[in-house]
């Protein structure tokens, strides 16, 4: 009986010795060391820190005055449906930075800029 009690006391003491510092570290506010670890256990997910692991975003744009270099795409026609990494959502028609793509011909009337007489959609053909 005494042996059992001793074991219980020892295990409780060991748990308290290891657990209390760990619990305290987890409760430490972000910004005071161990922040990211503590934040994982916080209730408000908004306070979780954003840690940038890598930036592999391809920002290659149209380089003014330069010749083609690393482009091995031999598609020399229109590339409207390419699955490219150009920052544009083709389905939504929105590009990076919030720029909106124009409505394609035939989906809306031409602009009322005084140049088009009757609002008829343009007829277009590429040969």
């Amino acid at each position: 009986m005494r042996k059992t009690l001793t074991l219980l006391v020892a295990s409780t003491a060991l748990t308290a010795a290891i657990g209390v510092p760990a619990w305290s570290a987890m409760q430490a506010p972000a910004g005071r060391g161990l922040g990211p670890v503590a934040a994982l256990f916080e209730e408000d997910p908004q306070t979780m820190p954003l840690i940038l692991a890598s930036d592999d975003d391809d920002d290659r744009g149209w380089r003014e005055g330069s010749r083609r270099g690393d482009d091995d795409d031999d598609d020399d026609e229109e590339d409207e449906d390419d699955d490219d990494d150009d920052g544009c959502d083709d389905d939504e028609g929105v590009c990076r930075g919030g720029a909106r793509n124009p409505a394609p011909a035939g989906t809306v009337a031409p602009p009322q800029n005084g140049l088009f007489e009757n609002g008829a959609p343009p007829q277009v053909q590429v040969n």
Partner: peptide, 30 residues
């Protein structure tokens, strides 16, 4: 860069060596 200027009058880019034909009803006053 106002895209409203080209709403309804926008199509695909044109490949090298290709011919683009666009037919429009334009105001006579132009």
């Amino acid at each position: 860069g106002d895209t409203a200027q080209v709403n309804g009058i926008t199509g695909a880019s044109v490949g090298a060596g290709r011919t683009l034909e666009v037919t429009l009803d334009l105001a006579d006053a132009l």
